[in-house]
Nucleic acid binder design. Sequence first.
DNA 1: ATTAATGCAAACGGTTTGCACTACT
DNA 2: AGTAGTGCAAACCGTTTGCATTAAT
Lengths: 146, 146
Amino acid sequence: MTSPSWESLPDRLRARGLRWTPQRRVLVDVLSSTRGHVTGSELVERCRAVDPATIPSTVYRTLDVLEDLGVVRHGHGPDGREEFHVLPEAEHGHLHCESCGTSWDLSLDDARTLVRSLRARRGFVVDLSHVTIVGRCAGCVDPTPP
Amino acid sequence: MTSPSWESLPDRLRARGLRWTPQRRVLVDVLSSTRGHVTGSELVERCRAVDPATIPSTVYRTLDVLEDLGVVRHGHGPDGREEFHVLPEAEHGHLHCESCGTSWDLSLDDARTLVRSLRARRGFVVDLSHVTIVGRCAGCVDPTPP
DNA sequence: ATTAATGCAAACGGTTTGCACTACT
DNA sequence: AGTAGTGCAAACCGTTTGCATTAAT
């Protein structure tokens, strides 16, 4: 069970008085085959690959709806663009190498000490899904030549 | 000694064949009286307060130059906008409350365990000045009524 | 006199909005 | 029939760029 019940989405929408449209199907198809995180504009592109008639505003509006439904969440990448990821992934942040540009997931486990100490010292509750840690990855810090 | 030697800036510029202009003076004045972090557009506004004729592109171009000189650094805030801070402040990240919107500094000390564990577990060297931890502050998590 | 820097205006990219129209329910 | 959702175009915001002009060196 990798992902939420995509099949039940139409009904979940309708249960709220919302509607299941072809455009939403395209986006949901794209999301359901997406691993990790994507920016909004990436999603627009991928939808366009499926249906060239895709309109950006429709995608963004649908993403809002899906976020309300708890199907996706968004955070912000190191360059400030919106990043969406599909639930119910484990809550995680991102590690971003400013040198090579690669991103990795940062699990709650990785961040446990940070989360704990901020709660202890400041009463601050971290929302890991909005966290991006920037720095240099092992490969870029310590380049091992071929 | 709170800040870098602003007085030497004109000469440091000229040593590089760059120039000291009234517009740069305005921005540097603004920066020298700035605590913590500011977005680019905030700097534009503050410069405009000093000189209403301030042009955004000039400010941004000068910020580039100042970053080359190591006078400022920039990162990205939780909403993705550019955030500049003045050196040589202690390297620090930011804590941002997604509920009330307040930001606090996150010192290297606060983040020590995170920095250490990422280095140990992944060989990843954190660039704290680009880190923003989002979550909810003590006041918003645990609202104490009047 | 050189040429860096400015002012201006226009363009950018990602996202949001207003509104008349379409189509799901 | 009712109203959520769409398409379109325009606006948005912060930032960047091209280019002729100005001014620091």
